[in-house]
């Protein structure tokens, strides 16, 4: 007890711990990701598990992606028109909407929506499996839990994120057209011509690279938080699972935004 108290109030040790712990954690996350990624390719290959996860992460997210994509595009149409009309360049609306969506908003908002819908579920499901000893049971059967639980989710995220981003972008551009052309009177030919002329292949590639990176971040962080639920010092059992789910959502959302900035500065 005395030793613990000394440890807690030793400022040098506390400083050391606060530096070592995040580094250690980052290392663990990196190892966790590599194990999960490499196990996607180990035999026997089980495509049915990946398909199940594609259905859960991708297919079931389509509605929410369409909805957010449509409204994001529509609000971009409104705001873009208001701003561009100040410079007399309303005709550029198609380009403004398409570029903001493809380069930035599409990958980021899709990732955030999938975190809320599927990422939290991943953390909670794996967390419950951990506290009810189901992961230990896999271990005793000599079934690699990372291969069984994490790899299919990682593979499915890598497949779904770019596709969901593409859907988000397309619906968003149509949403922008709806407000720009339908409500505010921009010629539809001009809108789509600007979209076509302004979007280059690099923009699309950049957007997809971002979505792939976000897929890795979201799947790894959410699975990691669930997988190590039992190691949390601040809560056990159901409380531990709720904390893991919260951490999974918060950490992956923040990391998506941070990595978006870093990627943008490299891709520009």
């Amino acid at each position: 007890m005395n030793q613990e108290t000394t440890k807690r109030y030793n400022p040098v040790a506390a400083l050391g711990r606060s530096v070592i712990f995040p580094i250690q954690n980052m290392g663990s996350i990196a190892i966790f990701f590599f194990k999960g990624f490499l196990n996607i390719f180990t035999i026997p290959f089980r495509p049915e598990k990946i398909i199940q996860q594609v259905y859960f992460i991708g297919m079931k997210s389509i509605f929410v992606i369409c909805l957010t994509g449509a409204f994001t595009g529509m609000v971009l149409g409104l705001q873009g028109y208001y701003t561009l009309s100040k410079f007399g360049s309303e005709g550029m609306l198609g380009a403004a909407v398409a570029l903001s969506l493809i380069r930035e908003l599409g990958p980021v908002l899709s990732a955030i929506m999938v975190i809320g819908r599927a990422g939290s579920a991943m953390a909670a499901e794996i967390g419950i499996m951990r506290i009810s000893e189901q992961i230990d049971a896999l271990d005793t059967m000599d079934i690699n839990p990372i291969r069984f639980l994490v790899s299919p989710r990682l593979a499915a995220s890598l497949i779904c994120f770019p596709l969901l981003t593409a859907i988000f972008d397309s619906i968003g551009i149509l949403g922008g057209y709806l407000t720009g052309s339908g409500l505010l009177g921009i010629n539809s030919g001009v809108y789509f011509a600007r979209v076509e002329s302004s979007v280059a292949m690099e923009d699309l590639t950049g957007g997809f690279i971002k979505s792939l990176v976000f897929a890795v971040i979201v799947a790894t962080i959410c699975c990691f938080q669930g997988y190590y639920t039992h190691m949390r010092s601040e809560g056990f059992g159901a409380k531990g699972v709720s904390m893991s789910t919260t951490s999974a959502v918060v950490i992956s959302s923040v990391l998506v935004l941070i990595s978006d900035y870093i990627l943008t500065s490299f891709l520009l």
Binding site: E133, Q134, D136, A137
Partner: peptide, 8 residues
């Protein structure tokens, strides 16, 4: 396992 640890 004591708590069966069945996959729910």
């Amino acid at each position: 396992f004591q708590g069966t640890a069945l996959f729910d």
